[in-house]
Amino acid sequence: MFSYCTDPQTLSGLTWLSCYLTTGKHMQFYISFGVVLLLLAITAPTALLFGFGGAAAARSRIWPVSWLGKGYIAIVRGVPDIAFFMFFVIALDQGFEWMRHQLLCPDWDQPIRQGSDFVVCTQAKLPLGNAPQWIHEIYGFSLAVLTFAIVFGAFAANVLYGAMRAVPQAQLETAAAYGMTRRQIFWRILVPQMWVYALPGLGNLWMVLIKATPLLFLLGIEDIVYWARELGGTANPRFTDYPHGDWRVWYFLALLVFYLGFTRISEVFLERLMQKLTHGQATTGGDAQRKAAA
């Protein structure tokens, strides 16, 4: 990075450190923090969407839909996330390619499963074989987001399902008395009201999501834990200009600080949000706010 870094063996102390901490490998480490944050930022709303769909389906009066919703919630919640991550990405990838294969290559005569191989026609490959590397990376990233969203969507669905049932029945009955249809009641009364009941659960889910990110490397994303391991491991002078011993403890300590800090910031933010949402609600929190104002 710096001009004096050409021969690190001659350096010592802080200058050495400044060179060491700015190698290309370290840059990728720093970038991976951004990748993890970006993934969280995209996954959270996606998971919420899955959760909303799941909860709405579970509430449905049509029984196949309701069973689908309930089954999704029960199965995904019952299985450790790590077990999903071990095969889900490959399964999703194969699923997408299979669908594209059926659409794009109707007159393909060879079997898709050849022994243990999974072979689709070239047009159906995702991404296409000649796509540049960054498309592959974005595709891998999207698969990871989708996997995370499916898994955490089930938890979100559970929370939202509970929250929908916690909205006071009297309010829904009042709405019905005013002549609202079922659909209107759902969108105008239930959905706006449920958030305050859902927020504690969703907040906790967000915390779990943050802490699940070390599993990203199972999904093919080089996340911060991957790089901390890679950088912290003993560096042999034969393969690097910056040899050092087993420094994993320091790298993991940095990660610990990162995670604790991130958790703290989230906590503060969620508390503020809760304050806002309880405003004017028929809950103990809302009551307390009213009393304080009066």
Partner: peptide
Amino acid sequence: EGAYPPWNFLNDAGQ
């Protein structure tokens, strides 16, 4: 794999 020197590993530049 990128983690098995001298066969394959990531160098200082991360390649």
